[in-house]
Amino acid sequence: MNSAQLAAASRARWSTLNQVAAIHPHDQTEADDQRRVMEWITSGAGLYRLAKPATPPMHLVSYFQVIDPDTGSLLLGEHHKAGLLLPTGGHVEPGETPWEAVARECAEELRLTARASSRFGTDPAFVSVTSTVGAATDRHVDVSLWHVIHARRAEVDYFDEEEFTRIRWLSPDEVLATAVGQLDPCMHRFTRKITATGSGPAAGLRPDGVAGGCLCGRLRFTVSGEPDYPHVCSCGHCQKRAGGPLQSWVSFPLDGLRWTGEDGAPTWYDTFPDTTTRGFCGTCGSHLAAHDYGDTLIGINLTALDDQHDPRLVPVNQSFRDDAVGWLPQIPDTQHSTSR
């Protein structure tokens, strides 16, 4: 390799090490695998398969588990060679990052653009070290980094028939009810990890957060964390932006927000320069978010949420009551605002 290729390979190696180190193990087996993989990466051993099927005998694989964000179903394929139900994915090419491998394999195997899970992003959610089955001359050790991507069932209308006999959508419970011998040997553990409940790093995939989006659907998002101070606002800015007498807001932790739609993040407009900015869809004009620069919370328009029936989202106050129209009853003040 030339100097540029060597530099790229070095960056990919240390990027992979950092990603593996950032994984929060779900059980002792994953903790042991994580430690083994980090030692392997730092040893300077070759990470990438250079020749089929087993050169070097231990090499890097990127799985990507496709999840339907609407139902939580997992996509698995009946693999020709392995004879198992497996997530999609493949070997990481020399100099490639694990996520770059996901993006490439997703395009090849499903003809989809990889859309990262809002919870895990482009980082792996799980790590495993597995000895493959088959002829003795073909056996090797897969170091698998398991990623999570989102695609709705209707979006998946193609699969690589050279890799898979067919593809199947299974609920997490159906995956766990399938015999281990019919799956990747780590599939049950992976499924338990991503569907675990709680608020920690291993909190499950279905509670990816509260989902929402704009009218045309080109902007989608999830926000996780506890909702804070749901209220309506009657200030002049909110009335102008909403095209109505008030706008409804609830705050979430900024670091729990992920933009997941095809247009990425919204268009931003500073209603108060260098102080407050508001996000909207550049296509349909829907108002989605507001953020005070430097704040750790972000305001989300309540009506942009898919599910507005959570009792924690009931407005507790109406801000700027003096600016409100006189013909509309005001929201009871059950939690006083310091704004006005």
Rank of each mutant, 00 (worst) to 15 (best):
N2A: 07
N2L: 00
A9F: 02
L17D: 05
I23A: 10
G44P: 08
A45K: 10
Y48F: 14
A51H: 14
P53F: 02
V61Q: 14
L76T: 07
K81I: 07
E108K: 06
L110K: 03
R111F: 04
S117Y: 02
R119Q: 05
F120Y: 12
T122D: 13
T130Y: 01
G134T: 05
D138A: 15
D157I: 04
Y158P: 00
E163M: 08
T165A: 13
S171M: 03
S171K: 00
S171T: 15
D173E: 13
E174K: 07
V175I: 10
L176R: 00
A177K: 12
Q182R: 11
L183H: 08
H188Q: 08
I194F: 00
G209M: 15
V210H: 09
G213A: 02
L219V: 05
R220D: 09
F221H: 10
V223I: 14
P230F: 07
W249A: 11
S251A: 13
P253D: 12
G261T: 03
D263H: 15
D263K: 10
D263V: 05
A265S: 06
D274F: 08
R278C: 04
T283F: 15
S286V: 09
A289F: 14
G294R: 01
D295W: 00
N301I: 14
D306G: 10
R312H: 14
P315H: 12
V325C: 13
W327K: 05
T338W: 09
S339D: 09
